[in-house]
């Protein structure tokens, strides 16, 4: 079983943290995993994205062309990656910021109001964790509890004060998705 995910948003939405946390959780659960960021000539205000592969076998390339899952934190990301998901795959849509629906009918759309849920917890910056909670609920790639523990290893020192909020956000996102 191999799950390839592309996560995308605008700079500052915590896409890299979301991907790193997922990869860390997969590692803790003894799976093979790779994390690969978009790097180099990125534009301010443009999309940031990363690819995470989780597998029970060795991973060939960390670069993902046809993902099983796409996570779109903003409209530009949905526009860019909607066509790339494999037929039968899943697109996670941050419905707080994306009005339109997924146009393809051969994929599953999961809408998560990530910003609104994070705001209700007191800090919109946790929208990435809300989304990640929803992702692991739907895909089962990694356990929610593992992610909560991995936060201790993945968060930077200056973000450690947000760890309880992040854990709550993961849980709320998990509950948000059926």
């Amino acid at each position: 079983m191999t799950t390839k995910t592309i996560m995308a948003g605008f700079g500052g939405q915590g896409v890299v943290l979301m991907g790193t946390l997922l990869a860390h959780g997969a590692m803790v659960e003894g799976k093979h995993t790779t994390f690969f960021p978009s790097y180099g000539a990125e534009m301010r205000g443009g999309t940031a994205n990363c690819s995470v592969v989780v597998s029970d076998r060795e991973i060939a390339s960390p670069i993902v062309n046809q993902p099983d899952c796409v996570v779109a934190m903003n409209i530009a990301s949905l526009n860019k990656f909607e066509s790339r998901v494999r037929p039968g795959g899943i697109i996670f849509v941050n419905s707080s910021l994306i009005d339109r629906r997924v146009e393809r009918d051969d994929v599953t759309e999961i809408r998560v109001p990530a910003n609104e849920v994070a705001e209700s917890l007191g800090d919109v910056r946790a929208a990435n964790m809300v989304m990640l909670g929803g992702i692991v609920k739907k895909t089962g790639v990694v356990n929610l509890e593992t992610l909560g523990e991995s936060l201790e290893k993945v968060l930077s020192e200056r973000a450690m004060g947000l760890i309880d909020l992040d854990r709550q956000a993961l849980k709320r996102g998990f509950e948000e998705v059926a």
Partner: peptide
């Protein structure tokens, strides 16, 4: 190469 330098792995 750029993949090996940029990727994260356990």
């Amino acid at each position: 190469d750029g993949i090996l330098g940029q990727m994260r792995e356990p």
